[in-house]
Protein backbone atom coordinates (compact mmCIF):
# COMPACT_ATOMS: atom_id res chain seq x y z
CA UNK A 1 0.00 0.00 0.00
CA UNK A 2 1.36 3.46 -0.75
CA UNK A 3 2.35 5.66 2.13
CA UNK A 4 -0.33 8.21 1.33
CA UNK A 5 -3.09 5.64 1.11
CA UNK A 6 -1.87 4.15 4.34
CA UNK A 7 -2.17 7.45 6.18
CA UNK A 8 -5.54 8.16 4.64
CA UNK A 9 -6.74 4.84 6.01
CA UNK A 10 -5.26 5.65 9.41
CA UNK A 11 -7.15 8.93 9.45
CA UNK A 12 -10.42 7.11 8.89
CA UNK A 13 -9.71 4.56 11.60
CA UNK A 14 -8.72 7.25 14.07
CA UNK A 15 -11.79 9.33 13.38
CA UNK A 16 -13.92 6.29 14.03
CA UNK A 17 -12.32 5.69 17.39
CA UNK A 18 -12.57 9.44 18.08
CA UNK A 19 -16.31 9.10 17.64
CA UNK A 20 -16.41 6.20 20.11
CA UNK A 21 -14.57 8.40 22.61
CA UNK A 22 -17.03 11.21 22.10
CA UNK A 23 -19.95 8.93 22.94
CA UNK A 24 -18.15 7.49 25.95
CA UNK A 25 -17.37 10.96 27.25
CA UNK A 26 -21.01 11.93 27.18
CA UNK A 27 -22.07 8.82 29.09
CA UNK A 28 -19.26 9.13 31.61
CA UNK A 29 -20.23 12.70 32.35
CA UNK A 30 -23.62 11.34 33.45
CA UNK A 31 -21.83 8.79 35.60
CA UNK A 32 -19.89 11.64 37.10
CA UNK A 33 -23.00 13.54 38.10
CA UNK A 34 -24.60 10.47 39.60
CA UNK A 35 -21.59 9.59 41.76
CA UNK A 36 -21.11 13.18 42.85
CA UNK A 37 -24.68 13.28 44.08
CA UNK A 38 -24.24 9.97 45.91
CA UNK A 39 -21.08 11.22 47.56
CA UNK A 40 -22.76 14.39 48.75
CA UNK A 41 -25.54 12.31 50.32
CA UNK A 42 -22.98 10.06 51.91
CA UNK A 43 -21.55 13.07 53.71
CA UNK A 44 -24.61 12.97 55.96
CA UNK A 45 -23.46 9.60 57.27
CA UNK A 46 -20.53 11.32 58.90
CA UNK A 47 -22.77 13.77 60.70
CA UNK A 48 -24.86 11.29 62.66
CA UNK A 49 -25.49 7.54 63.03
CA UNK A 50 -26.15 6.10 59.54
CA UNK A 51 -29.92 5.68 59.40
CA UNK A 52 -31.50 3.09 57.10
CA UNK A 53 -33.31 5.98 55.39
CA UNK A 54 -30.11 7.64 54.27
CA UNK A 55 -28.70 4.34 53.12
CA UNK A 56 -31.70 3.42 51.04
CA UNK A 57 -31.75 6.89 49.56
CA UNK A 58 -28.21 6.40 48.33
CA UNK A 59 -28.85 2.83 47.26
CA UNK A 60 -31.72 4.05 45.16
CA UNK A 61 -29.15 5.37 42.71
CA UNK A 62 -27.86 1.88 41.93
CA UNK A 63 -30.57 1.49 39.33
CA UNK A 64 -29.32 4.61 37.54
CA UNK A 65 -25.73 3.43 37.67
CA UNK A 66 -26.71 0.09 36.15
CA UNK A 67 -28.38 1.86 33.26
CA UNK A 68 -25.31 4.06 32.65
CA UNK A 69 -22.98 1.07 32.65
CA UNK A 70 -25.40 -0.56 30.27
CA UNK A 71 -24.93 2.33 27.87
CA UNK A 72 -21.17 2.05 28.13
CA UNK A 73 -21.39 -1.66 27.39
CA UNK A 74 -23.56 -0.90 24.39
CA UNK A 75 -20.96 1.45 22.91
CA UNK A 76 -18.16 -1.04 23.56
CA UNK A 77 -20.08 -3.76 21.80
CA UNK A 78 -19.45 -1.87 18.53
CA UNK A 79 -15.67 -2.27 18.95
CA UNK A 80 -15.19 -5.85 20.12
CA UNK A 81 -12.20 -6.76 22.32
CA UNK A 82 -11.27 -3.10 22.80
CA UNK A 83 -12.56 -2.65 26.37
CA UNK A 84 -9.08 -1.80 27.60
CA UNK A 85 -8.39 0.62 24.80
CA UNK A 86 -11.05 2.93 26.20
CA UNK A 87 -10.89 1.89 29.81
CA UNK A 88 -9.36 5.15 31.03
CA UNK A 89 -12.59 6.98 30.26
CA UNK A 90 -14.62 5.40 33.05
CA UNK A 91 -11.84 4.24 35.37
CA UNK A 92 -11.85 7.09 37.88
CA UNK A 93 -15.61 7.09 38.19
CA UNK A 94 -15.63 3.33 38.66
CA UNK A 95 -13.27 3.60 41.62
CA UNK A 96 -15.80 5.90 43.24
CA UNK A 97 -18.73 3.67 42.35
CA UNK A 98 -17.07 0.62 43.92
CA UNK A 99 -16.19 2.68 46.97
CA UNK A 100 -19.78 3.81 47.39
CA UNK A 101 -21.28 0.35 46.97
CA UNK A 102 -18.73 -1.29 49.26
CA UNK A 103 -19.14 1.38 51.92
CA UNK A 104 -22.91 0.98 51.98
CA UNK A 105 -22.54 -2.78 52.03
CA UNK A 106 -20.17 -2.60 54.99
CA UNK A 107 -22.47 -0.21 56.84
CA UNK A 108 -25.35 -2.62 56.39
CA UNK A 109 -23.62 -5.93 56.88
CA UNK A 110 -20.17 -5.28 58.36
CA UNK A 111 -18.73 -7.42 55.59
CA UNK A 112 -16.84 -6.95 52.37
CA UNK A 113 -18.72 -6.56 49.10
CA UNK A 114 -17.22 -9.19 46.83
CA UNK A 115 -15.96 -8.49 43.31
CA UNK A 116 -18.73 -10.60 41.87
CA UNK A 117 -21.45 -8.91 43.91
CA UNK A 118 -20.17 -5.47 42.97
CA UNK A 119 -20.25 -6.39 39.30
CA UNK A 120 -23.73 -7.88 39.73
CA UNK A 121 -25.06 -4.72 41.37
CA UNK A 122 -23.91 -2.80 38.32
CA UNK A 123 -25.27 -5.37 35.90
CA UNK A 124 -21.81 -6.13 34.56
CA UNK A 125 -20.93 -9.51 33.18
CA UNK A 126 -17.49 -10.95 32.77
CA UNK A 127 -16.47 -11.72 29.22
CA UNK A 128 -18.36 -8.75 27.94
CA UNK A 129 -18.15 -5.44 29.72
CA UNK A 130 -16.95 -6.56 33.17
CA UNK A 131 -15.72 -4.88 36.32
CA UNK A 132 -11.95 -4.72 36.04
CA UNK A 133 -10.29 -6.35 39.05
CA UNK A 134 -7.86 -3.51 39.68
CA UNK A 135 -10.64 -0.96 39.52
CA UNK A 136 -12.46 -2.95 42.18
CA UNK A 137 -9.35 -3.09 44.35
CA UNK A 138 -8.68 0.64 44.05
CA UNK A 139 -12.28 1.21 45.07
CA UNK A 140 -11.60 -0.82 48.22
CA UNK A 141 -8.57 1.37 48.93
CA UNK A 142 -10.87 4.38 48.73
CA UNK A 143 -13.11 2.69 51.29
CA UNK A 144 -10.11 2.15 53.54
CA UNK A 145 -9.26 5.87 53.26
CA UNK A 146 -12.75 6.83 54.33
CA UNK A 147 -12.93 4.62 57.43
CA UNK A 148 -10.71 6.62 59.80
CA UNK A 149 -12.85 9.70 59.34
CA UNK A 150 -16.00 7.66 59.71
CA UNK A 151 -14.82 6.00 62.90
CA UNK A 152 -13.75 9.29 64.44
CA UNK A 153 -17.15 10.79 63.76
CA UNK A 154 -19.12 7.76 64.94
CA UNK A 155 -17.19 7.57 68.19
CA UNK A 156 -17.92 11.26 68.66
CA UNK A 157 -21.64 10.53 68.36
CA UNK A 158 -21.21 7.81 70.98
CA UNK A 159 -20.99 4.61 68.92
CA UNK A 160 -17.80 3.34 70.50
CA UNK A 161 -18.00 -0.21 69.18
CA UNK A 162 -17.75 1.11 65.65
CA UNK A 163 -14.01 1.39 66.22
CA UNK A 164 -13.78 -2.33 66.87
CA UNK A 165 -15.87 -3.25 63.85
CA UNK A 166 -13.82 -1.05 61.56
CA UNK A 167 -10.52 -2.25 62.98
CA UNK A 168 -11.39 -5.91 62.45
CA UNK A 169 -12.66 -5.26 58.96
CA UNK A 170 -9.72 -3.16 57.94
CA UNK A 171 -7.00 -5.41 59.33
CA UNK A 172 -8.53 -8.40 57.55
CA UNK A 173 -8.67 -6.38 54.36
CA UNK A 174 -5.10 -5.22 54.81
CA UNK A 175 -3.82 -8.75 55.42
CA UNK A 176 -5.64 -9.95 52.32
CA UNK A 177 -4.11 -7.21 50.17
CA UNK A 178 -0.68 -7.97 51.63
CA UNK A 179 -0.67 -11.35 49.95
CA UNK A 180 -1.07 -9.81 46.50
CA UNK A 181 2.08 -9.28 44.51
CA UNK A 182 1.34 -5.74 43.42
CA UNK A 183 3.15 -4.01 40.63
CA UNK A 184 4.77 -0.70 41.23
CA UNK A 185 1.77 1.33 40.16
CA UNK A 186 -1.25 3.25 41.34
CA UNK A 187 -2.75 0.30 43.17
CA UNK A 188 0.51 -0.36 45.00
CA UNK A 189 0.73 3.27 46.02
CA UNK A 190 -2.86 3.28 47.19
CA UNK A 191 -2.32 0.09 49.13
CA UNK A 192 0.78 1.58 50.76
CA UNK A 193 -1.49 4.30 52.11
CA UNK A 194 -3.83 1.72 53.63
CA UNK A 195 -1.53 1.03 56.55
CA UNK A 196 -1.95 4.62 57.73
CA UNK A 197 -5.73 4.16 57.69
CA UNK A 198 -5.37 0.98 59.70
CA UNK A 199 -3.04 2.66 62.15
CA UNK A 200 -5.44 5.55 62.65
CA UNK A 201 -8.40 3.23 63.23
CA UNK A 202 -6.33 1.19 65.67
CA UNK A 203 -5.51 4.36 67.56
CA UNK A 204 -9.18 5.23 67.86
CA UNK A 205 -9.88 1.71 69.10
CA UNK A 206 -7.06 2.15 71.58
CA UNK A 207 -8.54 5.46 72.76
CA UNK A 208 -11.94 3.97 73.49
CA UNK A 209 -10.55 0.72 74.89
CA UNK A 210 -8.17 2.36 77.35
CA UNK A 211 -10.97 4.54 78.63
CA UNK A 212 -13.22 1.56 79.14
CA UNK A 213 -15.77 2.75 76.63
CA UNK A 214 -15.93 -0.46 74.64
CA UNK A 215 -18.86 -2.80 75.17
CA UNK A 216 -18.03 -6.43 75.94
CA UNK A 217 -19.53 -8.19 72.96
CA UNK A 218 -17.08 -7.12 70.33
CA UNK A 219 -16.77 -9.07 67.10
CA UNK A 220 -13.75 -11.23 66.47
CA UNK A 221 -11.81 -11.19 63.25
CA UNK A 222 -13.94 -12.29 60.35
CA UNK A 223 -10.97 -14.25 59.12
CA UNK A 224 -11.06 -16.42 62.21
CA UNK A 225 -14.79 -16.92 62.30
Amino acid sequence: MSVDRQFEEFRLQLEESGAVRERLRAIVSELDSATRLMQAQLLLIHHSRPSPEILSKIKAHTEGLRSIYGQLAEVLKSVPAQYYRYHDHWRNQTYTVVFLLAFIHWLETGGLLSHGDAAALLGLKDGEFGLDLEDYLVGLCNLSNELPRYVVNQVTTGDYDCAKRASVFLSDLYAAFRMLNLRNDLLRKRFDGMKYDLKKVEEVLYDVKIRGLLSDTTPTSAAES
Binding site: A81, Q82, Y83, Y84, R85, H87
Partner: peptide, 9 residues
Amino acid sequence: QGSEFWKFR
Protein backbone atom coordinates in the same frame (compact mmCIF):
# COMPACT_ATOMS: atom_id res chain seq x y z
CA GLN B 1 -5.77 -13.12 23.48
CA GLY B 2 -8.91 -11.11 22.87
CA SER B 3 -9.19 -8.08 25.12
CA GLU B 4 -5.75 -8.72 26.58
CA PHE B 5 -4.32 -7.24 23.45
CA TRP B 6 -5.39 -3.82 24.71
CA LYS B 7 -5.39 -4.63 28.40
CA PHE B 8 -1.68 -5.25 28.57
CA ARG B 9 -0.67 -2.72 25.96
